[in-house]
């Protein structure tokens, strides 16, 4: 995929997500997203756990690690890497840019 068919989508305002918190956002044409604020840095991932049909935003977030409320599987929201079983498939992460106080992600057209 080349740069021409990638688009920037606004996900939410930075002020919508407090420090250490997560927010679920649904945008048309994309799976539900999770926006995380880790010490003032914003990260966006898929919101649905890769192990089961659970919303990661309903789990605990601690030092950049989100824990699924179903079976305590955990991911590093900065990289999508699996931190704890039973998850084994990494979480999809999105490239984030901050545009005038909004969290935006780059997605395929």
């Amino acid at each position: 995929m080349n740069a021409a068919n990638r688009v920037i989508k606004i996900v939410c305002e930075t002020r919508d997500v407090a420090h250490g918190c997560a927010r679920r956002v649904e945008l048309e044409g994309l799976p539900p997203l999770a926006v995380f604020n880790v010490d003032g840095e914003f990260y966006v991932t898929d919101d649905t756990c890769t192990h089961g049909d659970a919303s990661l935003c309903e789990g605990d977030v601690e030092d950049g690690i989100v824990e699924c409320p179903f079976h305590q599987g955990a991911f590093d929201v900065r990289t999508g890497k699996v931190v704890s079983a039973p998850c084994s498939v990494p979480l999809k992460t999105y490239e984030v840019t901050i545009v005038n106080g909004a969290v935006a992600v780059e997605v395929g057209d």
């Binding site: 690690i65 305590q72 955990a74 931190v83 704890s84 079983a85 039973p86």
Partner: peptide, 8 residues
């Protein structure tokens, strides 16, 4: 047992 991470 590998089912538990350091975090767990």
């Amino acid at each position: 047992a590998p089912g538990l991470s350091e975090r767990d």
